Amino acid sequence: MNTTTSVLAALALAALAHLPARADDHGRAIVLPPAYVQECGACHAPYPPGLLPNESWQRLMANLPTHFGTDASLDAPTQKALSTWLTATAGSGKRARVAPPEDRITRGDWFIREHREVPKAAWTRASIKSAANCGACHDGAAQGMYDEDSVHIPR
C-alpha cells in the first residue's frame, strides 16, 4: 500500500468511527469505537455488535490468535477495551437470541432467512468471495446500513 492509499484509508476509517450509524437491538444509534473500526474493520466489515449475543463476543475476543484461521491478536489494553464494549453492546433481541454455529454471523438463522433469495453460486463469485463480505452487496455496510432497497449483487 502506498503512502497516499494509506492516508486515504486512515481518513476513511476515522470518518467511519464517528458515525452513529449502527443501531442496537432497540433501534438506538451507537458509535463504533475508532479502535474497533481500525482493528476489526481492517479485515472485514466492523459488524454491528448487536448481531451476536454476549457469549459469542466473549468467545471471539478470547480466541483472537486463531480468529477464523487468522491471527487477529491485539495488545492487551485494546483487547480489554473492545471486549468490554462488545459485550456491553451485544445483541439480546431476536437476531442474537441464540449464538450461531461457530459464532459466525453468516450462519445465524436470521442471516440465512434474510439472504434466502441470494443464489448459492453468488457467494463464490470473485466479486463477492463469501457471505461475510457484506460490502460486496450492501453499499452502505461500512456505515452500518443494510437496507434491502440498496442491495446490489455484483455479477
Rank of each mutant, 00 (worst) to 15 (best):
G108N: 11
G108M: 03
D109A: 15
D109N: 02
W110H: 04
W110E: 03
W110C: 01
F111W: 14
I112T: 14
I112Y: 07
R113H: 03
R113F: 00
R113V: 00
R113I: 00
E114K: 14
E114T: 14
E114D: 15
H115I: 03
H115Y: 00
R116C: 09
R116N: 07
R116P: 00
R116Y: 06
R116L: 09
E117I: 14
E117R: 15
E117K: 15
V118Y: 11
V118Q: 11
V118C: 09
P119M: 03
P119W: 05
P119I: 07
P119L: 00
P119N: 04
P119H: 02
A121E: 07
A121L: 08
A121C: 00
A121M: 01
W123F: 06
T124Q: 12
T124K: 13
T124L: 07
T124N: 09
R125I: 05
R125K: 14
R125M: 00
A126I: 06
A126S: 11
A126T: 12
A126H: 05
S127T: 09
S127N: 08
S127H: 01
S127D: 03
I128Y: 02
I128L: 06
I128M: 01
K129E: 15
K129L: 15
K129P: 08
K129C: 10
S130M: 07
S130I: 02
S130P: 08
S130C: 06
A131M: 12
A131V: 09
A131G: 02
A132I: 02
A132K: 04
A132D: 14
N133R: 05
N133Y: 05
C134P: 11
C134S: 12
G135Q: 13
A136L: 01
A136K: 08
A136F: 03
C137V: 02
H138V: 08
H138W: 06
H138C: 07
H138M: 06
H138R: 09
D139K: 12
D139F: 00
D139T: 11
G140K: 06
G140T: 05
G140W: 10
G140V: 08
A141M: 06
A141H: 01
A142C: 00
A142E: 10
Q143G: 09
Q143T: 14
Q143A: 15
Q143W: 08
G144Y: 06
G144T: 12
G144D: 09
G144V: 13
M145D: 09
M145Y: 02
M145N: 13
Y146K: 08
Y146D: 11
D147E: 10
D147P: 04
D147F: 10
D147I: 09
E148S: 07
E148N: 11
E148H: 11
E148F: 00
E148I: 11
